[in-house]
Simulated scan of single mutants.
Amino acid sequence: MPSVTFVLPDGERREVNVLKGASAMSGAVQSGITGIVAECGGSCACATCHVYVDPSCEGLLPERGTLEDELLDAVAADRRPNSRLSCQIVVTPELDGRLTLHVPETQ
C-alpha cells in the first residue's frame, strides 16, 4: 500500500497507508487523522477534507477539476494556490512515500 504523510496543524507528522486507487481522504479517515472531517464521505460535495499540498509535491498531482476548484472557494481555512480536496487526490504507487499533505487549522 502506498503511504502518504499528513502534517497536522501542530506540526505532528503522521504517515498513513492508503489503498492503491483510493483517495487520500479515505486513508486519512481510516487512520483517524484529526482535521479531515469528510462530511460528504468523499463525493466532492462539502470541502471538509481540505488540505495544502506540500510545495515539494505539487508537480506530482494532476490539475484540480472544475467542481473541486469551485468547492475550494468555500473552505473554512484560507484557500491557497496549493489547496486541494483530499477526496480528489487518488493515491497511486508513484506517490508512495512522496506525497505530503498539510491539514489546515479548520475545516
Rank of each mutant, 00 (worst) to 15 (best):
V7H: 13
D10N: 13
R13I: 05
R14D: 14
V16K: 07
V16D: 05
V18S: 11
V18Q: 12
K20P: 14
S23V: 00
S26M: 15
S26Q: 15
G27D: 11
G27W: 11
G27E: 11
G27M: 15
A28D: 08
A28E: 09
A28C: 09
V29N: 11
Q30G: 07
S31G: 03
G32S: 11
G35V: 05
I36Q: 04
I36H: 09
V37G: 06
A38Y: 03
A38N: 01
E39M: 10
E39K: 07
E39D: 14
C40W: 10
G41F: 03
G41Q: 09
S43P: 00
A45D: 07
A45V: 12
A45Q: 10
T48W: 00
H50D: 04
H50M: 07
V51W: 08
V51F: 13
Y52I: 00
V53F: 07
V53T: 12
S56D: 15
S56V: 07
S56Y: 03
E58T: 12
E58M: 11
E58F: 00
E58P: 07
G59F: 01
L61P: 15
P62Q: 12
P62H: 09
E63M: 01
R64D: 08
R64C: 07
L67A: 14
L67Y: 10
D69W: 02
L72K: 12
A74R: 13
A77P: 14
A77V: 09
P81T: 03
N82Q: 13
S83P: 02
R84K: 06
L85E: 02
L85F: 09
S86K: 08
S86A: 07
I89N: 00
V90Q: 11
V91K: 02
V91Q: 05
V91F: 03
T92L: 08
T92V: 09
P93M: 02
P93T: 06
P93C: 00
P93L: 03
